[in-house]
Simulated scan of single mutants.
Amino acid sequence: MKIAMATDHAAFSLKERIKHYLNNLEHEVIDFGCYSEESADYPLFISKAARAVANGQCERGIVMCGSGIGASIVANKIKGIRCALVYTPELCRLARQHNDANIIALAGRFTEEDTAKRIVDVFLLTKFEGGRHLGRVNQIIEIEEGRL
């Protein structure tokens, strides 16, 4: 799977470890930055990764910042993105099954590497359930498009 990734300086180290993990699983990772632990403004990097998912360049995205909050806010500003800030594999599973999340946000300062790997596994393997949830996702899309 082709996966977009982006972060700020606070989550750079976690991004690098998760990127390595994904590469070892033979996923293709497109890294939109940042590229060091030097102070960096996350909106520029996160928006590029989100646009890559929205336009189909990447199938899914993983974005990070210190808390994950700013990264999720930025990603959700891009039309077509449903980014969920997740702290546990269970929340990630629900975000995929019920909300068809196409990007997840992780908290670099609060998420241990092993937990992040379990979350990423769930994100990539869990399918959207559709059914009663499809109507809700469609309503989200209608709100985004200004029709609801």
Rank of each mutant, 00 (worst) to 15 (best):
Glu145Lys: 15
Ile73Pro: 01
Asn138Phe: 07
Arg147Val: 13
Thr7Cys: 15
Ala50Thr: 09
Leu124Cys: 07
Thr111Cys: 14
Glu28Cys: 02
Thr111Ile: 13
Ala116Pro: 09
Lys19Gly: 02
Leu91Asp: 08
His27Cys: 07
Glu16Cys: 13
Gly56Tyr: 11
Met5Trp: 01
Glu112Ser: 12
Leu148Arg: 14
Asp100Glu: 11
Leu25Met: 15
Ala4Thr: 09
Arg136Cys: 11
Gly130Pro: 06
Asn24Phe: 08
Arg51His: 13
Leu125Gln: 15
Ala10Tyr: 01
Arg118Cys: 03
Ile103Trp: 06
Gly80Cys: 11
Arg82Pro: 04
Ile62Gly: 00
Glu38Tyr: 08
Ser47Trp: 01
Glu129Thr: 07
Tyr42Pro: 05
Ala4Tyr: 04
Glu26Asp: 15
Lys77Asn: 10
Ala101Val: 02
Ala6Thr: 03
Val86Lys: 03
Gly61His: 07
Glu28Met: 10
Gly131Glu: 14
Glu113Cys: 04
Ala40Pro: 00
Gly108Thr: 04
His27Val: 06
Glu16Gln: 15
Val120Glu: 03
Gly146Ile: 13
Cys92Asp: 00
Ile119Lys: 02
Leu134Met: 13
Thr126Val: 10
Thr88Gln: 11
Tyr87Ala: 07
Thr111Ala: 08
Leu91Thr: 08
Ile81Gln: 05
Arg51Gly: 05
Glu142Leu: 14
Phe123Leu: 08
Ala49Phe: 00
Gly80Trp: 00
Leu44Phe: 11
Ala101Asp: 07
Lys19Met: 10
Ile141Arg: 12
Gly80Thr: 11
Ile3Gly: 02
Asp121His: 02
Asp41Trp: 12
Arg60Glu: 01
Glu28Tyr: 08
Ala50Asp: 09
Gln57Thr: 15
Tyr42Glu: 05
Pro43Cys: 12
Ala116Ser: 12
Thr126Trp: 12
Glu59Val: 09
Asn138Gln: 15
Val120Tyr: 09
Val137Ile: 14
Tyr87Lys: 03
Phe12Cys: 08
Gly131Asp: 15
Ala107Asp: 04
Lys48Asn: 13
Lys77Ala: 01
Glu145Gln: 15
Pro89Arg: 02
Ala75Tyr: 01
Lys48Gly: 03
Leu85Val: 05
His27Pro: 01
Cys34His: 03
Leu44Ile: 13
Met64Ile: 11
Val122Phe: 03
Gly33Gln: 06
Glu26Gly: 01
Val53Asn: 01
Ser72Asp: 06
Thr111Pro: 06
Gln97Glu: 15
Arg93Gly: 01
Gly56Trp: 08
Leu91Cys: 05
Ile18Trp: 03
Phe110Asn: 12
Glu129Ala: 14
Arg60Ile: 02
Arg147Lys: 15
Leu125Phe: 00
His133Gly: 09
Ile78Ser: 04
Leu14Gly: 05
His9Leu: 06
Phe12Thr: 04
Val53Pro: 01
Arg147Ala: 10
Phe110Asp: 11
Lys48Trp: 00
Arg118Ile: 00
His133Cys: 09
Gly108Pro: 05
Pro89Met: 04
Asp8Phe: 06
Ala105Leu: 10
Ile81Cys: 07
Thr115Arg: 07
Gly130Arg: 09
Val53Ile: 10
Gln139Glu: 15
Ile3Leu: 07
Leu85Met: 14
Val86Arg: 04
Lys15Ala: 11
Arg51Ser: 12
